[in-house]
Nucleic acid binder design. Structure first.
Lengths: 246, 246
DNA sequence: GGCAACACTTGATCTTGGTCAACTGGTGCA
DNA sequence: TGCACCAGTTGACCAAGATCAAGTGTTGCC
């Protein structure tokens, strides 16, 4: 919750702004790896990298979007807030993920605040420049379009899950997401504190606790932040996933 | 629920496919009005217009996306379904709105089914062709990107509302949306049956009824499908809208 | 070591919205 | 005219999740 312990690491004064190792890291991002090195260099001319400590606020809901951001290292949470004190985690981002492209492209105020959930390094692509690049570089526009399309579909799934599924089912889906493509039985490590996960799943921490104990009946055993899942397909079936299409 | 009473009105056999008046209608869409007439003609070469009767299914959740679609006339509902019988309306579209761009661009199965809520005329832009056009025409990619960005933000708002607001507040937001930009007091006509609105807001019809009577205490009076709102800013305040940023 | 702070859990109770059922009024149709 | 059907409302009850409160570790700090 404390503001602005962040630290600009590399900035845009002379020539190219990013340190070579940062540029290399950016080139490896799934997001930008389809772009030519030349295009990438162009796009990142005015970019900078900023470090944030845990719990630093990166921007606040309502702010004007100044830059498109990409998580280079760490974790970022996007939280929606409401006047009466309600708050929820809309999304949690990890390394390699871009955030708030829609706000930057539409030049509308942020709908969410961003907080560093872990010490993080964030790439910032200034909005004005980025919008110009998108207008002038078809390759960038295309990459953005496919990325935003994929992202859009995760949000549609989110809306459906919120309207149609129980807290325990949403938690199970979250856990399945953590297992990535593994099948059969697995042990996963929870990448966040349980209260963060609760906000992400859309329940209170108390309810998350109860949802976990409910999932015991479906082969999910929790020990601290290690979760073992006995039978992923069974868990998937429990939340009706895979019957409708992924 | 009955399938395929639809009727192809103009198709893609010889030369240009659309009737001139359809092409003119397409050119007027907010979506495409920034494109040059030449570009538009190109893009719509393989397009067709299909008519659907009320309750016709346009496509089903899980189907492979064959074409990007645009509502020329009528209303279309996008519903998400779950194996155990649960169903919800994720979105309702009216004339001039495009749907399922994300599924077409990513070539992934539909996450929702589409149903004509009213007799409708739907423009279909075949997927293969459309994807090629997007790749080859920067102007089209750019238009799609801004449109999808705007759309994305409405979904983010939806997620926040579902997580943070009560049924009555979501109904109030829906009503405010109907009033568009009007201020002060207004009377609006509900554009759908109440059961459709209930699914859209994310509650049962019974709960919608009760939410309406709850809103009486906030200056909302319902008579059939005419709704009078005494004080829009007050209603907005009731659902904490405008305090957080729109 | 001892104590405060925090994260999480568990239990009791309350609120919201869902479920089931009965009823009303309109609409279409025989 | 009368009847079946559908959309919507209302009431009684139920269930999921929130809230409030107390308790258990664990961590970090003096």
């Amino acid at each position: 919750m404390d503001m602005n312990a962040q630290q600009r690491v590399s900035s845009s004064s002379e020539g190219h702004s990013l340190r070579p190792e940062d540029l290399a890291a950016v080139a490896r991002l799934p997001l930008f790896c389809d772009l030519s090195p030349a295009a990438l260099a162009e796009i990142t001319v005015e970019a900078s990298v900023v470090k944030y400590a845990r719990n630093d606020v990166i921007f606040r809901q309502g702010d004007a979007p100044s830059a498109l951001r990409v998580v280079l290292d760490g974790q970022v949470g996007l939280t929606g807030t409401i006047a009466d004190g309600g708050e929820t985690m809309v999304e949690i981002l990890k390394s390699g993920e871009m955030f708030i492209p829609a706000a930057v492209l539409t030049e509308k105020p942020f709908l969410m605040s961003a907080v560093a959930l872990q010490p993080s390094r964030i790439l910032a692509l200034p909005g004005e420049r980025f919008r110009r690049d998108v207008r002038e570089r078809p390759d960038l526009a295309y990459v953005m379009l496919t990325s935003l399309s994929r992202h859009f579909r995760t949000l549609v799934r989110e809306v459906k899950d919120l309207k149609l599924k129980s807290a325990a089912q949403r938690l199970a889906l979250y856990l399945i997401g953590l297992t990535a493509k593994r099948e059969g039985s697995t042990i996963v490590r929870l990448p966040h504190s349980k209260s963060v996960i609760a906000a992400r799943v859309g329940v209170r921490p108390e309810t998350l606790s109860r949802a976990f104990s409910h999932l015991k009946g479906h082969g999910v055993v929790v020990d601290g932040n290690a979760v073992s899942i006995a039978d992923i397909p069974a868990l998937r079936a429990y939340c009706h996933e895979g019957e409708e299409i992924i």
